[in-house]
Design a protein around this nucleic acid. Structure first.
Length: 419
DNA sequence: TCTGGGGTCCTAGGACCC
DNA sequence: TCTGGGGTCCTAGGACCC
């Protein structure tokens, strides 16, 4: 059996942990740059606020309905996520952290009442971290997801859904719209609806060969999982990333090369940090920038450059140097740029890097410097020490007008309790 | 004024190898 | 009718996830 534990309206719940006055009120959290709605409390959902809606389009509506609006505060969400996961880790040695707000628990060999067990997980996380979660328990991952969905819709008991018999599975799948099945997205939904398939149960009745042909082995695996045949294994150790991307829309459009160079150097620095964290190096890089496609009356320009690095590296200095050089190649004067990014690829483990006779870079020296930079920044906070090319970010940094305090990760933001 | 960011996997087709 | 057989690597495109 597997459990899927999913935090309810996670970002909103994080904001509420230190603001209990927001319980029962509509709350939303915005994407970077205060752009779109990316998390909604149940009250906000009931008001009809849609996922992904641009905030500026419904600014009046939000105000009229006294919706509490927050910029996204990833320092807070990341920290609370970490706490939730460490609590879940007490329940089983088989924990797969699937995303910032979800985890699978392998429950093999456990002989307990599943309803009780699910409730215990819920209560423990709520008491220790203050985040409400839903728990789905079933024989496969896809069914655990379905059980979780079932629980969220209020049909399970107190946020816990258990599908441990063919009868319960059939009943739940007959109520589950096919587009809510994990692994069935927009395109497959269209395909299935054209076949008169509306529910997960109807999908399960389809012919294997047809599914294989039209939805590849991925679709077939989903179907088998719905039948109760486990095809998806637990990933206890997160595999190293094969591609790492850092990109941002700017708080304001950029026209000059200078600030763009700083932005790209900063993105390269973030990529380098991510590479070092997973102990790998990148052999290729892509740098891209583009104007704002929504402004149809303005001249548009988008360009990227992909290139091999002379030797695979995770040095901030090297990656930033190449990123800036690439930017200078693709930058054209006379446009208003909205977004840029750096992607690193050709990722290999640190200890398997093929050196270069001609790069002229002393890799050992770079590694030693990076180690000290990481140590200092881990202790005193990100960018306490950085390379000069990153600049201050003053010109291009994100708009975050409604940022909540970093209650758990900054000394200055810790809540004061009056005695 | 204003519209997010970061990933994975699978398949088909072309170039190339012996 | 019937044009060898078996393979790798790379890329682009399309699907999906949070």
């Amino acid at each position: 059996m597997y459990a899927l534990v999913d935090c309810n309206n996670f970002y909103v719940s994080c904001e509420r942990v230190f603001r209990p006055d927001l319980n029962g009120r509509p709350v939303v959290v915005l994407s970077n740059n205060d752009g779109c709605i990316i998390a909604r409390s149940n009250e906000a959902k009931e008001l009809g606020i849609r996922m992904g809606e641009p905030a500026f389009k419904i600014a009046d509506f939000l105000q009229q309905n006294q919706v509490a609006v927050f910029s996204s505060n990833y320092a807070l969400y990341g920290d609370l996520s970490h706490r939730v996961m460490s609590i879940l880790g007490r329940f089983t040695p088989e924990l797969e952290i699937y995303s910032i707000d979800e985890a699978f628990l392998g429950l093999a060999g456990l002989n307990v009442d599943w309803e009780d067990y699910g409730r215990k997980i819920r209560e423990t996380v709520l008491r220790h971290v203050g985040i409400p979660v839903s728990v789905g328990i079933a024989p496969t991952k896809v069914l655990a997801k379905a059980a979780n969905h079932h629980a969220k819709k209020g049909r399970g008991k107190q946020g816990v859904g258990v599908l441990d018999s063919p009868e319960k599975i059939e009943a739940a799948l007959k109520e589950l719209p096919v587009d809510e099945v994990w692994g069935i997205g927009r395109q497959y939904t269209k395909l299935l609806k054209a076949q008169q398939v509306e529910t997960a149960w109807e999908f399960r009745q389809l012919d294997d060969d047809w599914v294989r042909r039209r939805m590849t082995v991925v679709g077939l695996r989903v179907k088998k999982e719905l039948e109760g045949i486990a095809c998806l294994e637990m990933e206890l150790i997160p595999p190293a990333k094969k591609v790492i991307c850092t990109s941002r829309s700017f708080g304001a459009d950029q026209t000059d090369l200078g600030p763009l160079e700083e932005a790209v150097a900063t993105f390269a620095a973030r990529c380098a940090e991510k590479l070092r964290r997973q102990r790998s190096c990148a052999g290729m890089m892509m740098v891209f920038l583009h104007t704002n496609g929504f402004k149809e009356d303005e001249p548009q320009y988008a360009k990227n450059l992909v290139f091999k690095l002379p030797a695979a590296t995770n040095s901030t200095i090297e990656l930033a140097r190449h990123a800036r050089a690439a930017l200078r190649v693709i930058y054209k004067k006379g446009y208003r740029y909205k977004k840029a990014g750096v992607i690193v690829m050709g990722i290999v483990p640190e200890e398997r890097v093929q050196g270069s006779l001609f790069s002229g870079v002393d890799e050992a020296k770079h590694a030693a410097v990076m180690k000290q930079i990481d140590r200092i920044n881990a202790k005193y906070g990100r960018d306490t020490i950085k390379i000069a090319a990153q600049g201050s970010g003053e010109k291009w940094k994100l708009r975050r007008q409604k940022l909540s305090p970093c209650y758990t990760t900054r000394w200055e933001d810790i809540i004061k309790v009056r005695v």
